[in-house]
Design a protein around this nucleic acid. Structure first.
Lengths: 127, 127
DNA sequence: CTGCATCCGAGCTGATACTG
DNA sequence: CAGTATCAGCTCGGATGCAG
């Protein structure tokens, strides 16, 4: 590493916290994880419907990254029409606990400001 | 809320997890929190030096947001030259625990890929 | 010393169209 | 059905300069 420059990626590769945060970062990964956490195994299009507003681009990209990071498992069935099922790996499920405790903290912290707290809004759009 | 559009901000206001993640999101907030977690109370310029690479813009902005969210306390002394001390609030310290468990998870998860894991790199630049 | 305003570039995200 | 390609817009973060 030369001088002033240590890229974000590189710092995140070195700090476990940033590393973890990075794995679930981005706009859609948390919503995806929330869905998979409740459903055992979900098809691509099913995910897409639940994540209203997401594009194929973002969905396939997010899933691919989650898979590369060992959070998500991809099971492809060679049928016609194609079928692909996504699920959380064991590793993936294991991050649910730390995430939950953060969520708990968030709930507490929110309560001292507003008076609201549903769970995880993959989509609360009415249309 | 009209139709397709529910802005990120609004979703984050509603999901405790995203809400929490958002409070410590961005490039510099975690490093700032890490420093304050160890130091009780730190001056603006001291922070700036430890966070090598950060600009005044980003530092003051990050601190302001952390303060608005009740994570950080700002103590201003009317002296000449000006002195301002920043510290974690009680609320701020309380997020350390969930963050730590995430960090632990990150450490575990990293070990199955590489073979490294320092703590939190506010700055490991040599120059 | 502490902090804000402005401008600008990079990267993330979205829209749209197309493929096996 | 399950994606990929391409292009465009926007938001975030960085650089620089100025102010109390």
């Amino acid at each position: 590493m030369s001088s002033t420059a240590m890229k974000n990626q590189e710092m995140e590769a070195v700090c476990p916290l940033k590393y973890a945060l990075n794995l679930v970062g981005g706009k859609w990964k948390l919503p995806i994880i929330c869905i998979l956490a409740r459903e055992e195994s979900v098809r691509y299009n099913s995910l897409k419907r639940k994540l209203c507003g997401i594009t194929n681009m973002m969905l396939s990209q997010s899933l691919k990254e989650l898979e590369e990071n060992g959070i998500v498992h991809r099971e492809q069935y060679n049928e016609i029409p194609p079928r692909v099922e996504y699920s959380l790996t064991k590793e993936g499920r294991s991050i649910l606990e730390p995430l939950d405790s953060l969520s708990e903290w968030g709930k507490m912290h929110m309560d001292r400001i507003q008076t609201q707290s549903p769970y995880c809004g993959e989509c609360r759009d009415t249309k």
